[in-house]
């Protein structure tokens, strides 16, 4: 499988600050790469370099096989950029915005108009087509932003924090749109601070902090990579909890009891059948038995030493 985006050793400095300090990335064709990191980690700088808005100080990157510096103009013909740093003109209507971008892509007047109408319909903005974008709700604005980046049917899409500040329904809308695009073969580089967003959309995740890649892999690999899994057992009879605790203690260190549930951290997923067998041998009826992986929140905390959500508060 070929790479839609490939970056090697990207470095970018702004004065004394090193925003990117040797970042490698690869987005495989037709997949979503989630670029995860707290504010100021360098996510947006990476996107801006790959979208030809910034030149890297060192390293190289190709998008669709084209070098982002030497072949910047042709790269721009392949990509769509959406998110916090690529908005629409608020004083134009939705339709005018999309027509303008169509014209700038070289569409003639009729084609630009037709494409705008098509996108407005697909993104449920028909009724607002002739209203200035500044009157749109947050969710509508984001849908228009997305539509604007899709005018020329890019094969490669940058979604830079596409749902920051949106309510849950509007977020789900954006996610649906992203999934449809990926299903139609578009490759996506998604940056986000929301771990559930990366979990929902990304095939692979790269975690960056302070301009460096600190972890990478599929969401499941990442969850396995850091932090153990959690085993939880609830006996049918509350009087059995001590027996349960004894069985679990044989297999995992320091089981805890809370609300009739015995939990313990385990590293070996094969303990599950063993637990079932031994509890059965001990004659304990089980009401609930689960082995769940760590959440991405826990992964993020383990990797960066701070929770992602804290950054949100600083921002707001």
């Amino acid at each position: 499988m070929t790479n839609a985006i490939l970056a090697e050793g990207l470095v970018k400095r702004f004065g004394q600050t090193t925003a990117l300090n040797g970042v490698d990335l690869a987005v495989r064709q037709g997949t979503v790469l989630g670029l995860l990191g707290p504010n100021g980690a360098g996510k947006t700088t990476a996107v801006r370099i790959l979208a030809t808005l910034l030149r890297p100080d060192a390293g190289r990157a190709t998008v669709g096989g084209l070098d982002v510096v030497r072949d910047a103009h042709r790269v721009r013909g392949l990509i769509g950029l959406t998110g916090q740093y690529a908005s629409v003109d608020e004083s134009l209507t939705g339709s005018e915005n999309l027509r303008l971008i169509g014209r700038l892509h070289g569409f003639d007047r009729g084609a630009a108009k037709a494409r705008a109408a098509e996108l407005l319909r697909d993104f449920r903005l028909e009724d607002a087509a002739d209203r200035a974008a500044k009157t749109y709700s947050g969710g509508m604005r984001r849908r228009l932003d997305l539509a604007a980046s899709l005018v020329a049917r890019p094969q490669l899409l940058f979604l830079d924090e596409p749902t920051t500040g949106l309510d849950p329904r509007a977020r789900a809308d954006v996610w649906d749109i992203a999934r449809e695009l990926v299903a139609s073969g578009v490759s996506v580089l998604l940056t986000t601070q929301y771990l559930d967003e990366a979990d929902q959309l990304a095939d692979e995740i790269v975690v960056i902090d302070h301009g460096r890649v600190i972890a990478g892999g599929t969401p499941d690999e990442l969850k396995r990579q850091t932090g153990a899994q959690t085993l939880a057992v609830r006996p049918a009879l509350e009087s059995d909890v001590d027996k349960v605790r004894a069985v679990v203690a044989e297999l995992a260190a320091s089981p805890e009891l809370a609300g009739g549930v015995v939990t313990a951290q385990v590293t070996d997923p094969t303990v599950l059948p063993v637990v079932v067998r031994r509890l059965d041998d001990a004659g304990v009826a089980i009401a609930e038995l689960a082995l769940r992986t760590s959440t991405l929140d826990e992964v993020f905390l383990a990797l960066t030493g701070h929770r992602a959500e804290q950054e949100e508060e600083i921002r707001a």
Binding site: L81, A86, V88, A148
Partner: peptide
């Protein structure tokens, strides 16, 4: 306004002349 609202970046990401 274009620079702060991000519209300028949108334009820069399009395959158009840099001076346009």
């Amino acid at each position: 306004i274009d620079l702060h609202k991000g519209f300028f970046d949108r334009l820069q990401s399009l395959p158009i002349a840099r001076w346009a």
